[in-house]
Amino acid sequence: MRLYEAAKVLRSKNSGPFELTLDVLFEDADLYRRVKTLGLIDRKTISELYQIPEDRITQLVYFDPALGIKITLARKVSSGTFPDRDVYGAQQHAPLMALELPL
């Protein structure tokens, strides 16, 4: 199963002009718990998917009441200046969608 099939919401957005934040929200509590228990999304996964060093990942948090995972990355270029490519950071989630989950 790929992450885009498992998640209900999978999105990216700026969290302030210098960070990009990725949200993965589940509908199925059981699926969320399995992803969390098995640690299927961790710093190593993100670092490989986005080809960035782990120290550019500033947060990676599971939040049970929202059945969600938040990953925050330091932006290479701040929002809306040269040579930024995505002012709102709204289209940086696609690599995460393709993540294969061994479930």
């Binding site: 957005k13 969600g68 938040k70 925050t72």
Partner: peptide
């Protein structure tokens, strides 16, 4: 979660 670096 929305637009924030940390969920809680």
């Amino acid at each position: 979660f929305y637009e924030k670096d940390h969920p809680y």
